[in-house]
């Protein structure tokens, strides 16, 4: 496993990814999930031949993987700062990795809730 001690670029990337990726993943899930549901269940019946559950499931899976990997990255970063592997004089990396962990948990839960909801509904029932 790569040590973060000599990977400053990766450290910066993980900080940013941990904070930005989970909210973005959920946003994309919401926009294309809701959009697809409206289009497929609407008058036009536009669905490009893709079923409701396959679409929502795939979107949820990808969102979950992105958010999950971001969360993992934040956890790794947090542990690395705890071990003193990273040069962190202002405590900024530790701070941002903590924020990343909190954000990851919240948005992973949200993505999972959404997945549970969209995958247990029946067709276009109102």
């Amino acid at each position: 496993m790569v040590s973060l001690a000599r990977a400053p670029r990766l450290t910066t990337l993980l900080q940013a990814y941990g904070i930005v990726a989970p909210p973005l993943a959920w946003t994309v899930q919401l926009v294309i999930g809701y959009g697809f549901a409206i289009a497929a269940c609407g008058e036009g019946g536009v669905s490009g031949g893709i079923g409701l559950h396959p679409w929502q499931g795939t979107v949820a899976l990808v969102a979950g993987l992105v958010a999950g990997s971001a969360w993992g990255g934040a956890l790794w970063l947090h542990a690395a700062t705890g071990r003193g592997e990273i040069d962190d004089p202002l405590g900024r990396v530790r701070f941002l990795s903590t924020i990343g962990i909190v954000i990851g948990v919240i948005f992973l839960t949200l993505i999972a809730f959404t997945a549970a909801g969209t995958l247990t509904t029946h067709g276009c029932r109102e």
Partner: peptide
């Protein structure tokens, strides 16, 4: 635009 478009079959 997208909303209106994908609620009609003919656009």
């Amino acid at each position: 635009y997208v909303y209106l478009r994908f609620q009609t079959a003919v656009w």
